[in-house]
Design a protein around this nucleic acid. Sequence first.
DNA 1: TTAGCGGTGTAGGAACTTCCTACAGCAGTG
DNA 2: CACTGCTGTAGGAAGTTCCTACACCGCTAA
Lengths: 227, 227
Amino acid sequence: MSSIESPSAGQGRLMASGQRRLRLYVTMGQRLLRDSLLFQILLHDEVELVGESETGVATLNRLKRATPSVLLIEENLQDNDGLTIAEHALAVNPSLSVLLISDTPVSSGRMAIYLEAGIKAVVSKDQPVQELIKTLFYIRNGQVYVGNWQQEPAPAAMLAYQALSGREREVAQLMASRLPVRDIAGRLGVSCKTVHSYKDRIFVKLGFERLPELILFMQRHQHGAAE
Amino acid sequence: MSSIESPSAGQGRLMASGQRRLRLYVTMGQRLLRDSLLFQILLHDEVELVGESETGVATLNRLKRATPSVLLIEENLQDNDGLTIAEHALAVNPSLSVLLISDTPVSSGRMAIYLEAGIKAVVSKDQPVQELIKTLFYIRNGQVYVGNWQQEPAPAAMLAYQALSGREREVAQLMASRLPVRDIAGRLGVSCKTVHSYKDRIFVKLGFERLPELILFMQRHQHGAAE
DNA sequence: TTAGCGGTGTAGGAACTTCCTACAGCAGTG
DNA sequence: CACTGCTGTAGGAAGTTCCTACACCGCTAA
């Protein structure tokens, strides 16, 4: 079976040139968060999960064998604190990119300490998932990410919504109510393909990549205008 | 354009008969968990998010207007405890199904208290996401779910893996490594459609519904056999 | 004032996924 | 021996993501 390897190939579809696989290790106490985060993260096919554990010591034990390029670790672990573990990990492998997840928004004082320790970024549990994901991909090649770790309430998407054209909003609303594309097309009197085009443009404008994002956003937008 | 409404239609695809929309309200302090859980939950298109909040009082204020059928609420809220809020909510609307998310596994004593209070199910943050989702759908019509709130380590999927046939395991492994279907087909010398069939059967056997579940499972299986 | 630029409405193609059906062979079992 | 169920194989229908195309319209800068 020497078979059919396409030569350039690698990862199917088109893949940004320099992007190597992101080898991820996750240390997080609670399964629920770990799982649901991983589902999000593994949606991106350049990510490979090379290990996970619930405690700091388990992490340190496994880290040398797993050879991750990024470590995603909670600040508050059952047995230790993430910063300490991260420091140990960095002592062994300085090229590791560490993303710390803190329970609360970080003060700039804390942030300075973290950066000093060689941590590449910090995301608080009060931030949206996409923020975490974005950060994860940002730091993967060793860059430091000091993004909006200060809050920034979230006008981003709301503003973006303003930028939708009339037709785009119609489609966004209908899609959020889970009407199948065919029915949306029928209702608007255009072809399915056109509806898809709208969807694509909406995604670009709002920065989404998958339908559930749009649905969550729109459903929040509907009940949550009052939020 | 009176257009093309298919008559029976409703929700596209085929929809289990009695299944009405699940109107969901979520009360959860941290955005990260709330978001990533919602992305999972909204994958199921019978779910409609009718509201969410971070605190107990906000929940009580909005609950009457949102008219959810299911309330997903954390046990430990910043301002209150979930049980109390749930009791208030149930006093107003006894037909509400409440699913409580506890930080730690619940003892049977606690469980009794919860059930007494009219809560339909409890899921701990140490359980896998699918457990939460399953529970959510289970209680949606008012049933009580006392599933395996005791742990049950997780042999379920592992056992299921044993049940895969040789060819199925091959495919599962290749898919987990993110090889595109076409390449898998080439490598195994069969048609793409056949590979899809394997995938379908794997999903049925392991109880999965989406590719990321398989990927997470297999990647855990690979590094984590030693877990 | 005209040429160019960007946004909007429209649509098609390629590749892939999910869901469902079909069927032949083999193995076990009543 | 016939029936049942699992395994390997494959096709169809519909939906999704990603990308390209193009006409029209209005604004701006030469």
